[in-house]
Every structure is written in structure tokens, then in C-alpha cells.
């Protein structure tokens, strides 16, 4: 069984999703649930912290593609942080760096949201 965990935390007006373990076609629905709950709660500023994620397949990448427009249409975004090289390489292969922001750490990503608010 693939071991996967998703946890959502609020940091001010930003929601941080911690993903842990293996994100594949079996576990992707758990991440979809997390996004659906955020949208239900009108929370559109999202940072996904990948620190503990060891594996991602296209089923996992597809979740971000499915939700990013909704977030952006509502003055939010999905930003990524703390990604391991192996996981980043897969995002890179599929062209994500052209359209998504990647940060070394979570705080940088959260700060970016604050900057866009103060503008």
C-alpha cells in the first residue's frame, strides 16, 4: 500500500498543504479532497510543502493542474516549496516551472502572497 498523508494548516491568510510519502493515482484523491475543502472554505492562497514527499506520478501532478485556475481566478495561487530534487525533476519534465512558482522554503512562498496583498 502506498503511504501518503496530507495535512492542511493555516498560516495567516495562506493555507499550507503538507504532503508526505507517495503521491500516485491511488493517493491523489486525498489531495483532491484537501483542495475541495479549501475551495469550499473560500481559501485560494495555497502553498504546498513537499518536504516529506518522496514520490509523485502524473496523477499527482494532474491535481495541481486541475485546481490552479480556480485559485488564480479568485486572486490566489498554488505555490510549491521544499521540493526534493527527484520530485522537482518530474515537475520540470512536464513544464511546470513555466507556470508555477517554486520556492526553497515555505516562508518565502508565504511571503510572496503577502507581497501581492500589499501591492
Amino acid at each position: 500500500m502506498a503511504d501518503f498523508n496530507v495535512n492542511v494548516r493555516g498560516v495567516g491568510s495562506v493555507s499550507v498543504i503538507d504532503v508526505k510519502g507517495y503521491l500516485d493515482a491511488h493517493t491523489a484523491p486525498q489531495l483532491e479532497n484537501a483542495f475541495n475543502q479549501l475551495i469550499d472554505g473560500s481559501k485560494y492562497k495555497v502553498v504546498v510543502n513537499f518536504n516529506d514527499l518522496s514520490y509523485i506520478s502524473s496523477a499527482g501532478l494532474g491535481v495541481f493542474m486541475a485546481y490552479v485556475e480556480t485559485m488564480r481566478e479568485n486572486k490566489g495561487d498554488i505555490k510549491f516549496s521544499n521540493m526534493q530534487d527527484g520530485v522537482y525533476n518530474i515537475f520540470d519534465l512536464l513544464g511546470f516551472p513555466m507556470l508555477y512558482e517554486f520556492y526553497k522554503n515555505e516562508n518565502e512562498a508565504i511571503e510572496k502572497f503577502k507581497e501581492s496583498i500589499s501591492k
Binding site: S57, S58, A59, L61, G62, M65, L93, G95, F96, M98
Partner: peptide, 22 residues
């Protein structure tokens, strides 16, 4: 075409593309 692909919000066909790359 990856840029178009993201715009279309279409989720599918990525697996085949990855397999070829990997």
C-alpha cells in the same frame, strides 16, 4: 505542447509523455 497543455486544463496524456521522457 506543454504550455498549451497547462492552459487547456486538460489532465491526461501526461503519463505517456513521461514514459517517453523517462
Amino acid at each position: 505542447n506543454l504550455k498549451e497543455y497547462h492552459k487547456q486544463k486538460k489532465v491526461g496524456g501526461l503519463g505517456m509523455f513521461l514514459m517517453k521522457k523517462l
